[in-house]
């Protein structure tokens, strides 16, 4: 077990001398947006450690903490998430005391029911990979479309067919794919703190025990999907077979299909049955994890 706390990392930064002054400035009122940006940008490391520290405390208090790198990365990742929100919405709170504003934003997040998708299975390399992809899909359309590839190995053309999209939607799908390959995938992997070694390890595992690996991936995927599906309330409810049938036949609900089916394996199967049950132009989607974009 490796215990690396915020304090430890700060001393590595040689940030000690300024720290008190910076902290002091963060406690004072800033009255213009420009001041806010300036003060906050100078203090990013302190603020990140603070947000991560709160998250760590939250996990400890809820009995979800353990001393390892995966947990440290987890709190850093969420700390960064909160800090980012603070950076943009804080500008609308001026005049304010930045430090306390951050505290209140983090506290608010932690008082939500399920502030983040925490599960010990999501802290393994495979879990982090899937959590990273699906979590990203909740905020990025590129990642959402890429899920069809990473989870089921579908290419853009196949996605268009399976979702029954029309001509006007197609270019966008290709664009999403392209952007994901160019930069989105790499960024997501890095944002999750997944190392080359870990990716390599995943490939090895899949190579050795393909079925078992994909089975485990499916189990975790369902878990992550159920959590992040809620990120779009309107497209959240599962539909009945009839409703899917109707939607495909009448040609409405394009957004519904794209969002919900990327995040719901069961409905994807239903939709596939509805559209391709007879003619098997495309094989029924199965979880076969693709590590590369």
């Amino acid at each position: 077990m490796i215990g690396i706390g915020a304090q430890h990392m700060l001393s590595g930064d040689h940030a000690m001398p300024d720290r008190t002054t910076t902290l002091g400035r963060l406690e004072e009122v800033v009255s213009t947006v420009e001041d806010f940006d300036r003060v906050v940008l100078q203090a990013l490391p302190i603020l990140l450690d603070r947000a991560a520290g709160y998250t760590k405390r939250f996990l400890r208090e809820t009995g979800q903490w353990s001393d390892d790198v995966a947990h440290e990365k987890f709190v850093l990742r969420w700390g960064a998430e909160y800090l980012e929100q603070f950076l943009v919405s804080g500008r609308s709170e001026v005049p304010c005391r930045p430090l306390f504003l951050l505290d209140s934003i983090v506290a608010k997040q932690h008082s939500r029911p399920e502030p983040f998708c925490y599960h010990s299975d999501l802290l393994t390399p495979l879990g982090r990979f899937l959590d990273g992809l699906v979590g990203r899909a909740a905020i990025s359309r590129d990642a959402l479309i890429a899920l069809y590839h990473h989870c089921y190995g579908l290419g853009p053309g196949q996605i268009i067919t399976v979702l029954g999209l029309n001509g006007s939607e197609s270019p966008r799908i290709y664009k999403n794919f392209q952007r994901w390959r160019d930069s989105g995938w790499k960024r997501t992997i890095e944002d999750m703190g997944i190392t080359e070694t870990e990716l390599h390890g995943l490939n090895e595992q899949q190579h050795r025990q393909r079925q078992r690996f994909n089975g485990e991936a499916e189990r975790i995927l369902r878990f992550a999907q159920a959590h992040y599906r809620k990120s779009e309330p309107d497209h959240y409810p599962c539909l009945s077979r009839h409703q899917w049938e109707d939607m495909f036949q009448q040609g409405y609900g394009i957004e519904y299909r794209i969002w919900h089916l990327a995040l719901c394996l069961d409905c994807l199967h239903t939709a596939w049955d509805v559209g391709f049950g007879g003619a098997s132009a495309i094989e029924k989607p199965r979880v076969t994890l693709q590590m590369q974009p």
Binding site: M9, G12, L48, K73, L76, A80, L83, G193
Partner: peptide, 14 residues
Amino acid sequence: DLVEYRERLLNSMK
């Protein structure tokens, strides 16, 4: 690994 990860997050935030 952890130190680098933290650096990376800070940089992308900047």
